[in-house]
């Protein structure tokens, strides 16, 4: 089972790399936000998977939970920017 988990994690990591394409290439800030959001949910899973690999999952769920909560905060903050500052591109 450990092997499966490990390959799963690797696969998720690969998926992160795929999502990261949007993060790096853009084209807009919002695409990057999508990317971060997507990476966040994948990370949560990887955290639990790693916990299972260590056989100490009870220690890792806390991190995953905190993670899920705070990822949300980051995205909210970034989107809050646009509520106050209109315009996708900055006032130059």
């Amino acid at each position: 089972m450990d092997t499966i988990f490990m390959y799963c994690s690797l696969y998720v990591a690969f998926l992160m790399l795929l999502s990261l394409y949007r993060g790096l290439v853009g084209p807009t800030v919002l695409d990057r936000m999508i990317c971060v959001n997507a990476i966040g949910s994948k990370t949560t899973v990887v955290l639990v998977l790693i916990g299972l690999l260590y056989h100490r999952v009870d220690m890792f769920v806390d991190i995953a939970l905190a993670y899920a909560m705070l990822n949300f905060v980051a995205v909210l903050a970034a989107s809050r920017y646009f509520q106050k500052r209109k315009g996708l591109h900055d006032e130059v």
């Binding site: 009870d58 220690m59 806390d62 991190i63 905190a66 909560m69 905060v73 903050a77």
Partner: peptide, 23 residues
Amino acid sequence: HSPGGGFQGGVILGASIIVLAIS
């Protein structure tokens, strides 16, 4: 007994209030 402690907890508490400010 588990990972965490004052600092992490404090940040999470702080984040909860920051969420209030953001929302």
